[in-house]
Amino acid sequence: MAVLVVTAVALLGCGGRATTHHKPGTSHEQASGEVGTLLAGTDAAGHKLREVPAAGAPEVRLAVRPDSEDGWNLQLATKNFRFTPDSTGGAALTGAGHAHLELDGRKIARLYGPWFHLPSAQVPEGEHTLTVRLYADDHTAWAVSGKPVEGTAQLTAAAPGAAGGGHSHDGQQPQPDPPGQEQADRTVTISVRDGKVTPAPARTELRRGERVALRVTSDRADTLHVHGYDKELALPAGQEATLTLTADRTGLFEVETHESRLVLTQLLVR
């Protein structure tokens, strides 16, 4: 009786390591799911464009609504796209990545989810254009027909203390600011210069329900993010910015910057 002997042979890729087979004519990046074609041009911020076919391409729309306490709440309605904050800096994968928020063409925040709170202190008086643009994890801008995938909305900000406050052009008027809304039980003042945080990062202990004001001055434009509370604040270069929040969740929450990835403090809420 004949005996059939089968010997398993591993496919070896670059450097002699075992690898996954991919179709002839495709690269390792394409085999792993990276898509699109890099174009010679860039977006307004200088990022390379990653061209994809119109069919199934990422889409985004921006809605702006006044916040009952301060500023505006922004909602990104996306299609064929998902936010992937855990893989930022990796390869460009189909319909994944993050977004940038611009005010009159100036970047003020990187967005890792569909909601963002824009404080009124970050918007000068007058008419403005907000733009959100979608990016892949490798920071290339998703593009269709040579144009970045983005959404815009108009915003009007009133003078500080003016009746009516700021409002968007969606026909909704904000409610008057409640008295004493800026009052805080604790104030934490932090400065960032040359990549160093002063005072050195430590824990800020709070009782549940207390309001804390985070006053931050950074020597470069950045974005402050409070983990666990999904609160963000644009940090203009050289200007103090303040984020006030109610510590209504218990636990340990890091406060950090997005671009420089610095831990500013930790909120310990009991």
Rank of each mutant, 00 (worst) to 15 (best):
L4S: 11
V6W: 08
V6C: 03
A10L: 08
L11W: 07
G15H: 02
G15M: 04
G16E: 05
H22A: 11
S32F: 09
G33D: 10
E34S: 15
G36K: 09
K48H: 11
V52R: 10
P53H: 07
A57V: 11
E59C: 07
L62N: 09
A63C: 00
A63H: 02
S68G: 04
L74C: 10
T78D: 10
K79W: 05
P85Y: 09
G90E: 12
A91F: 08
A91M: 12
T94L: 14
L103H: 00
D104Y: 07
K107R: 15
G113W: 13
A121K: 01
A121T: 12
Q122K: 05
Q122I: 11
V123A: 06
E127R: 13
T129V: 13
L130M: 01
R133T: 15
A141E: 07
V149L: 10
E150I: 00
Q154M: 08
A157M: 14
A158I: 07
A159F: 03
G164N: 11
G165C: 06
G166N: 09
S168L: 00
D177H: 09
A184C: 09
R193V: 08
A202Y: 07
R203P: 06
E205T: 14
G209Y: 02
E210P: 01
V212A: 08
T217E: 02
S218W: 02
D219S: 06
R220Q: 14
L224F: 04
G228F: 09
Y229W: 07
D230A: 12
L245F: 15
D248L: 01
D248V: 04
L252I: 08
E254Y: 07
E256H: 13
T257M: 09
L262Q: 12
V263R: 15
